[in-house]
Computed example of a mutant assay.
Amino acid sequence: MPATSKAQQKAAGAALSAKRGDTKKSDLKGASRSMEDSMSEKELKEMAATKRKGKPEHKSG
């Protein structure tokens, strides 16, 4: 499942970092906090690895 925006890709990267133990879960905010709880490490890795080129900063609608 690729990220649909740069913000989603960044949030997935932050959530992945927390899931791996590199970042404190308490440091997560907003979407990255819920992503860390609801997604597997594999799903987060796929979303975080999405290329940013051509993606909007935020998904509209």
Rank of each mutant, 00 (worst) to 15 (best):
G13E: 08
D37N: 14
A15C: 02
M1H: 12
R33F: 11
G21Y: 05
A3R: 04
Q9W: 00
L16A: 03
M39Y: 15
K10H: 11
Q9H: 05
T23A: 15
G13S: 11
P2H: 08
T4E: 14
A11P: 04
T50I: 00
A7I: 05
E46Q: 09
K24F: 09
A49H: 04
R20G: 02
L16P: 03
P56R: 00
P2G: 08
L16V: 00
K10Y: 10
E41M: 07
M1K: 12
K45W: 02
E41R: 08
H58C: 02
M47L: 07
K42R: 12
A14I: 03
S5C: 15
Q9M: 11
S5H: 08
A48T: 01
P56C: 02
K51P: 03
K24E: 13
E57I: 04
G13R: 07
H58Q: 09
K25V: 14
E36D: 08
L28Q: 07
A31L: 15
G54S: 06
K6D: 05
Q9P: 03
A18R: 04
R33T: 14
R52V: 09
S38M: 12
D27P: 00
S32A: 15
H58W: 09
K51W: 01
M35K: 05
M35D: 03
K25F: 13
A7K: 08
E46V: 06
K45Y: 03
D27T: 10
K59Q: 13
T4Y: 11
G13W: 01
E43P: 04
S60R: 12
K45Q: 12
K53F: 07
T23L: 15
E41C: 02
A14S: 11
D27V: 04
P2A: 09
S17F: 03
Q8I: 12
M47S: 00
E43D: 13
K25H: 12
E57T: 09
A12C: 03
K24D: 15
K24G: 11
H58R: 12
A49M: 05
L44S: 00
D22G: 11
E41H: 00
A15H: 01
L28R: 05
G13Q: 09
S34A: 10
S26G: 06
K24H: 10
R20K: 12
K42E: 14
A48Q: 01
K53P: 01
R33D: 13
K29I: 11
